[in-house]
């Protein structure tokens, strides 16, 4: 199997207004590769939700996107507080986001559910006090 085309991004945890820059970059790359618009939309929304989560909850982190011949893999890694109850976090509407985040229109408890909705597989590995790694795959 060929080596995947890999892109790495640092997600700035302090800057809420620039959140989404990595996703927008990935969107551009996927467009240049000529992928279909719906696949691009799914990948970029899933990644944006992950980026926003890292900014809100984890003080930033890193994102890696690997483009294989038959799939796209997105790995989001942070050293934040971790997720104590993943099943609860996956429920639509459950959120621990603070009020100032909600006033921006985020924190509706839809981030993780959207990431699952738009990808073909999603794995969450999280340890409280250590961090969270989320691996998502979209099949091509």
């Amino acid at each position: 199997m060929n080596e995947p085309l890999t892109f790495q991004y640092a997600v700035d945890g302090d800057n809420f207004t620039s959140a989404g820059q990595a996703s927008v970059q990935v969107k551009k790359v996927l467009r240049r590769l000529g992928l279909d618009p719906e696949t691009i939309r799914r990948v970029s929304i899933a990644m944006y939700e992950g980026e926003i989560n890292m900014v809100i909850h984890a003080g930033g982190g890193e994102a890696e996107v690997r483009i294989y011949e038959d799939s796209i893999e997105i790995v989001l890694r942070d050293s934040g507080p971790g997720i104590a109850d993943i099943d609860q976090a996956m429920q639509e509407g459950f959120s621990t986001a603070p009020d100032n985040i909600r006033s921006l229109g985020f924190g509706a408890g839809m981030g993780l559910p959207n990431m699952k909705r738009y990808t073909d597989s999603m794995q969450i590995e999280s340890t409280v006090g250590v961090g969270t790694t989320i691996t998502m795959r979209v099949d091509l």
């Binding site: 207004t17 989404g20 996703s23 927008v24 618009p37 229109g105």
Partner: peptide, 15 residues
């Protein structure tokens, strides 16, 4: 009725 900068990213990504 949201007007903050994040609406631009959302519109771009959601196409």
């Amino acid at each position: 009725i949201m007007t903050n900068i994040n609406v631009v990213a959302v519109a771009a990504l959601a196409d």
